[in-house]
Simulated scan of single mutants.
Amino acid sequence: MRNKRLQNQVTAGRFTLPAVTLICTLCWVSTSFLFPQLASIPTQDNQPFFWQSIQSFLLPGWAEQIVSFLIYAIIGYFLIELNNQFGIIRMRASMQTAIYFLFVTVCPEMHLLYAGDIAALASLISIYFLFRSYQQSHAAGYLFYSFLFIGMGSIIFPQLTVFSVLWILEAYRFQSLTLRSFCGALLGWMLPYWFLFGHAFFYNEMDLFYRPFIELSTFGEAFHLQTLQSWELAILGYLLILFIVSAVHCIAAGFEDKIRTRAYLQFLIDLTIFLFLLIAIQPNYCNDLLPLLMISNSILIGHFFVLTNSKSSNVFFIISLVSLTLLFAFNIWTLL
Rank of each mutant, 00 (worst) to 15 (best):
M1P: 03
M1K: 12
M1R: 11
K4H: 15
K4A: 15
A12H: 07
G13M: 06
G13W: 01
L17H: 02
T21W: 13
I23G: 05
I23L: 15
T31P: 00
L34K: 08
F35A: 03
Q37D: 13
T43Y: 01
N46A: 11
S53P: 05
S53F: 11
S53E: 15
Q55F: 08
E64S: 12
Q65D: 12
G76D: 03
L79C: 06
I80K: 07
N83V: 09
Q85S: 15
G87D: 04
I89G: 02
Q96C: 07
I99S: 00
F101R: 00
V104M: 09
V106K: 03
P108Q: 06
E109K: 08
A122Q: 04
S123M: 08
L130E: 01
R132D: 03
R132Y: 10
S137H: 10
H138F: 14
H138V: 14
I150D: 00
M152D: 01
V162N: 06
W167S: 03
I168Y: 05
A171E: 03
A171C: 08
R173G: 06
Q175H: 12
Q175M: 07
Q175K: 07
S176F: 11
S176Y: 07
L177V: 11
L177A: 04
L179S: 15
C183K: 13
C183Q: 14
L187K: 04
L187W: 04
W189Y: 13
W189F: 12
W189M: 05
Y193N: 06
L196A: 03
A200I: 06
F201R: 10
N204W: 13
F209L: 07
F209N: 04
Y210A: 15
P212R: 00
E215R: 00
T218Y: 10
Q229M: 14
E232P: 01
A234L: 14
L236R: 04
I241Q: 05
L242Q: 08
V248W: 12
H249C: 05
I251G: 05
A253F: 13
F255V: 12
E256A: 15
E256I: 14
R260L: 08
T261Q: 10
I269A: 02
D270F: 12
L278V: 05
L278T: 10
I279N: 03
I279L: 06
P283N: 07
P283K: 12
N284A: 15
Y285N: 08
N287V: 11
D288K: 01
L290M: 08
I299M: 08
F305L: 14
S312Q: 13
I318L: 13
L324M: 14
L326S: 11
F328W: 10
I332H: 01
L336V: 12
